[in-house]
Amino acid sequence: MNRRSQDAPADTRRRRFIVAVSRATMAAGLLGGYGVFGSVLGRFLYPAGDSGTVWQFVTPTDRLAVGDSLIYTTPAGAEVHVTRRDDTGATGDFTALSNVCPHLGCQVHWQPQHNRYFCPCHNGVFDREGRGVSGPPEGMVLSGYPIEVRGGMVFIKVEATPLVVPERRS
């Protein structure tokens, strides 16, 4: 075996190594580059922030007794049941639930004597957490709003702007 033929495999190995490295670099470049671009596309499609929502003052905590509920109308026109269930003074005392029944869109009422929300359209009953417990909406929930108590005042986070639909011309 002479020197030339001993060198040849080493040369081929080096060549193969360089080809493999350059291919891997290319693949990494393509994956990395278009991967970043793809993530930008995804981020663009995902709704940006929650700039459409605002924290709104509802009531001082001491104006709402345990077991009572008030109806708050948001700037966008939705109605929200703000209900007090405890008097520790913490955020957990309050719930903010939509008054729209998830069954067919009727308006639910707070019944303090039964500690429940009631939908008169089809006798739907929700517990005080807004979970449907009997009637057609059983298993459904009233949609909730983020709520917070700050310095003895109750705030909820709601949509600020309504979807404007032009009135139909008669």
């Binding site: 930008v40 596309l41 981020r43 663009f44 995902y46 940006a48 922030g49 700039s51």
Partner: peptide, 9 residues
């Protein structure tokens, strides 16, 4: 101005 990466796209 508002959409995430909107200015870029």
């Amino acid at each position: 101005e508002d959409a995430t990466f909107g200015w870029y796209l």
